[in-house]
């Protein structure tokens, strides 16, 4: 069981990063790298939170929020995934839990994205209620519509974070014994290969239309390889 104070902290942080994603201020606190690290930190294991954050960030490189398209919402999901992976002082257990935490984080991000669609529909119904006032240029009505949207987004993100945490932490407790069959080292290697492979494909999608991109990619790869060999 998660203690209520930690749950409240996770909920507040989830609400903040969820609000940041679209409504205010889009400072990218909602990216998994940040959110998962905060989730792990709140549960006393910043390093594990960062680990999950790095892995989810690799997947998130594939999903950029273009226009009105539907995309996963990473913030609340990553806060919960960071909390799920946090096992202070037990690196082996963290490594074995990682695939489950990353998988749950990815699924939760899809659910979170759907709640954003519902919020936008609800925002529309609020705006429709004030349609005549908005058409007449009533600033009070505009501020009401706008602030209602932001307050609802904050509440939505907090609620989904709390829900994810309350589902994911008991899930870890229930399944952790069943994960003894694969070593932490193997688990970590598999999830790392998948994440960096997806990130590699995502980066190629973005850069392959840029002139001379291959030259820049090769320079980067050589620099990275040199650091690996020299270490």
């Amino acid at each position: 069981m998660i203690d209520p104070v930690t749950l409240i902290h996770l909920t507040i942080v989830g609400a903040i990063v969820g609000l940041d994603f679209v409504s205010f201020p889009q400072a990218m606190l909602s990216r998994p790298l940040v959110s998962a690290t905060l989730g792990g930190w709140l549960c006393g294991d910043t390093a594990s939170g960062l680990l999950v954050g790095v892995l989810l960030e690799c997947f998130a490189l594939e999903t950029m929020p273009f226009g009105a398209s539907r995309y996963p919402e990473w913030g609340p999901a990553a806060v919960a995934a960071g909390a799920m992976a946090a096992v202070p002082g037990n690196a082996e257990l963290v490594a074995r839990t990682l695939p489950m935490a990353v998988l749950c984080g990815l699924c939760a991000a899809m659910v979170g994205g759907q709640t954003l669609v519902w919020l936008r529909r609800f925002n529309l119904s609020v705006a429709e209620r004030y349609r005549d006032a908005l058409a007449a240029g009533d600033a009070t009505a505009l501020v009401s519509v706008h602030w209602t949207g932001m307050i609802l987004d904050f509440g939505r993100a907090g609620a989904v974070t709390a829900l994810f945490v309350m589902v994911m932490l008991p899930l870890r407790a229930a399944l952790v014994d069943a994960l003894h069959t694969v070593s932490g080292e193997t688990s970590l290697a598999v999830v790392a290969v998948l994440a960096t492979g997806v990130a590699g494909g995502a980066v190629w999608k973005v850069v392959h239309t840029a002139r001379d991109y291959v030259r820049y990619l090769l320079v980067g790869l050589l620099a990275g390889a040199a650091v690996v060999v020299l270490r």
């Binding site: 680990l51 790095v54 892995l55 690799c58 970590l188 290697a189 790392a192 290969v193 994440a195 960096t196 990130a199 590699g200 980066v203 973005v206 850069v207 239309t209 840029a210 001379d212 991109y213 291959v214 820049y216 990619l217 090769l218 320079v219 980067g220 790869l221 050589l222 620099a223 990275g224 390889a225 650091v227 690996v228 270490r231």
Partner: peptide, 20 residues
């Protein structure tokens, strides 16, 4: 995009190394 290609080219192998 060019800077991304160079930085990601260096970053991904190093991330994999640190993770694994």
């Amino acid at each position: 995009a060019r800077a991304l290609a160079a930085v990601a080219g260096a970053a991904l192998p190093l991330v994999l190394l640190r993770l694994s």
